[in-house]
């Protein structure tokens, strides 16, 4: 059922041109509307503020709960971003416009996935200084940035596939997290544990197994989601 091409037939955009075209389109739209990054940053800052309200301000306690709080805020932000990424395709039948294009569905997947990844990353880059300031934690930790980039990519891999499904279902806003959280659970656990290790001042070797687990998740699900994307979007 995969989409074969005939030799000599007119071809669509080359793979990188198609991915870049979708990505460029999403970035341009976002720069116009600010419907994803701005509201989600505000939402995430609120989550951090609420955490500081409900958590005991004892510095030793903060150190143990801060990694969890950070990843709760990031996953909620991620879910909101993923919901928006496909809602905007749905509004004027944009998704069908994409589907009419003679490019492989896996390329559409990578275009949408990279867009979702970048939006989440931008939100996190804005949030992290605020988070570090509120909880009095170090900001410049290369290990932490590595964990954030890899985990966010992992969220985007499965999240994009599930968002493309959820957008066509009833109760889509609630269905996306219900689909997303169990599958992304290992990434959430690994990211929180690695963050805890970074804040505790451990060396990279102490949490490299978590980084490896997230990286493996990224690779496996980028491939699986790209390969199955045509079954999600093609009627």
């Amino acid at each position: 059922m995969s989409e074969q091409r005939a030799p000599g037939a007119p071809t669509g955009a080359s793979w990188w041109a198609a991915i870049l075209a979708v990505l460029w389109k999403d970035l341009l739209l976002e720069s116009r509307t600010r419907e994803i990054v701005t509201p989600i940053v505000v939402f995430s800052l609120l989550v951090i503020v609420i955490f500081s309200f409900v958590l005991d301000p004892n510095p030793r306690l903060i150190e143990s709960v801060a990694p969890g709080a950070l990843w709760v805020a990031f996953t909620f932000a991620g879910i909101l971003g993923l919901n928006r990424a496909f809602a905007l395709e749905k509004e004027r039948g944009g998704m069908e416009g994409l589907l009419l294009s003679p490019v492989g569905r896996d390329l559409l997947y990578f275009g949408k996935m990279l867009g979702a990844f970048l939006f989440m990353l931008v939100v996190e880059i804005i949030m992290l200084p605020a988070f570090s300031a509120v909880f009095n934690l170090p900001l410049v930790e290369p290990g932490l940035w590595l964990v954030i980039v890899l985990a966010t990519f992992g969220f985007a891999t499965v999240g994009t596939a599930f968002a493309a499904m959820a957008v066509n279902t009833r109760a889509r806003e609630i269905l996306l997290p219900v689909l997303f959280f169990p599958v992304a659970a290992p990434v959430i656990i690994a990211a929180a544990e690695a963050t805890r290790a970074v804040y505790a001042g451990d060396s990279f070797a102490d949490y490299s197994n978590w980084v490896g687990l997230i990286a493996a998740f990224d690779v496996i699900f980028a491939v699986v989601a790209a390969a199955t994307f045509e079954f999600i979007v093609n009627e």
Binding site: Q4, P10, G12, L29, R92, G93, E96, P102, N234
Partner: peptide, 22 residues
């Protein structure tokens, strides 16, 4: 051969398939 066939058709439906903010 859906990918090849897509080259050969141009489609107008009720929805415009255009992005409002572009």
């Amino acid at each position: 051969r859906r990918a090849d066939a897509r080259h050969l058709v141009g489609v107008v439906m009720h929805q415009t398939f255009l992005y409002d903010d572009l």
